[in-house]
Amino acid sequence: MHGFANPARFLRLARWMMPLLLVSGLLLSMGAVLYGALIVPPDRLMGDTVRILFIHVPSAWLGMAGWSTIAIASLVELVWRHPLAAIAGRAAAVPGATFTAICLITGSIWARPTWGTWWVWDGRLTSFLVLLFLYFGYIALSGAAQRDMAGGGGGSRITAIFGLVGAINIPIINRSVVWWNSLHQPPSITAGKSAIDGTFLWPLLIAALGFSLVFGGVVLARMRTLLADIQAEARLRRKAMA
């Protein structure tokens, strides 16, 4: 039933997937970001600052995709008790938080010349900052759960519940610019329609694909590390018992 309940099978797959994802992802994202920084024409109103788009937007998507990964992993952990789910959720937290931070920093840098301010407390910016704090809480909680695991506690389940509850913020971020008047503009890309000209859209989509592959590669790498940690700990414990 659980094809990957045995980590050996997952590890065999991860071993060749990880470098593939990382290398192809880095090449794609570097290519797209450089193309955006050097070749794309300036925007009608914003001029050269539009080049931040190719880092800011993919980071925003990945920051939200990171928490979606956590939420799905939490659900699978709570319902099916799949042993890899807890590890997947924990592995997605740090890269997700990193992309969220990159999005907030690049957004702030972009806001200064375009809007005339580094930061405002509008719906979109505030809900995205909340996402970063949720990541911090999740990382702290999963760290505590890992220490707790040695004593056979239920800390991992509490982490998973937090991961599920935190997911409520994702639709709020998405709808924040629609529900409330905000300084941040409404979505440019909605189902099948794009208000971004093709000149900007193609490098943006390639950058998003590249960022996603890097994210996948980092998650796999971290899952391998976490599994190795658990194995090493189990081995030490067996040795201590003997």
Binding site: V40, P41, P42, D43, R44, L45, M46, G47, V50, L53, T114, W115, G116, T117, V120, L183, Q185, P186, P187, S188, A195, I196, D197, T199, F200
Partner: peptide, 19 residues
């Protein structure tokens, strides 16, 4: 006391000129 510019959701290269 303070003005903030609002950007719309459209991204158009400068060559295309007007909206």
């Amino acid at each position: 006391d303070n003005l903030l510019a609002k950007h719309d959701e459209n991204y158009v290269p400068r060559q295309m000129g007007e909206m």
